[in-house]
């Protein structure tokens, strides 16, 4: 089972967060339709992995979504949609879905997140059974290596305005450069709404 239960600091034990990655998904249009229809069985976050940098990047978005929920100030309908918005540097929800949500015909690799809280207690096994039944793709763990296979850097640089950042100009090493871009992206996300 590639579904992982994430341990994130400063998230109350009432919340359980599960995540997995699927490569080469062939039924994105079906999944997208379930979201549009607000099918209650598909209360998940589906992210286009090509817009995602790393595990840390996803965790930062989840952290913000959950803390926002705890403060009672969700901007979107559910913590699952709030994760999508939390990846964006601006408050435009439609824009966030276009960039970090899944797009039929385009999205190939999908990161799935399930946030469970309160009295509803589906087990990881239940969730995994449902996901593997619904998603036609190759499951993989949510690791930096697996995410990196999908990352489309030109797109990420555009979304977080990282193309003309003076701080990056002097960084030559590609690996160091990517870690710097990750830091800048997480900072952009944190500053959304100020």
């Amino acid at each position: 089972m590639s579904l992982e239960t994430l341990e994130i600091d400063h998230i109350p034990s009432s919340h359980r967060i599960h995540a997995a990655l699927f490569h080469d998904v062939s039924n994105t249009d079906f999944l997208h339709a379930q979201l549009l229809a607000r099918n209650p069985d598909f209360d998940y976050t589906f992210l286009d992995a090509s817009s995602v940098i790393s595990r840390l990047h996803v965790l930062s978005a989840i952290y913000r979504a959950v803390t926002t929920q705890l403060e009672g100030s969700l901007t979107t309908a559910t913590p699952h949609s709030e994760v999508v918005l939390s990846l964006s540097p601006n408050n435009n929800i439609a824009d966030a879905y276009r960039r970090w949500g899944i797009t039929p015909g385009k999205t190939k690799d999908i990161i799935v997140i399930k946030i469970v809280s309160g009295t509803e207690v589906p087990t990881p096994e239940d969730i995994w059974a449902h996901l593997t039944g619904a998603i036609k793709g190759t499951p993989a763990p949510l690791s930096d290596e697996e995410i990196a296979k999908a990352t489309d850097w030109p797109k990420v640089r555009k979304y977080y305005s990282l193309n003309a950042v003076p701080a990056l100009a002097s960084v030559k090493d590609e690996e160091v450069r990517r870690r710097e871009m990750e830091r800048l992206a997480i900072m952009k996300m944190a500053l959304r709404g100020l």
């Binding site: 701080a167 830091r183 900072m187 944190a190 500053l191």
Partner: peptide, 12 residues
């Protein structure tokens, strides 16, 4: 931070 001034980065 974006301008390359040595300061801590914002996490959240």
């Amino acid at each position: 931070y974006r301008e390359g001034v040595p300061v801590p980065v914002v996490y959240a």
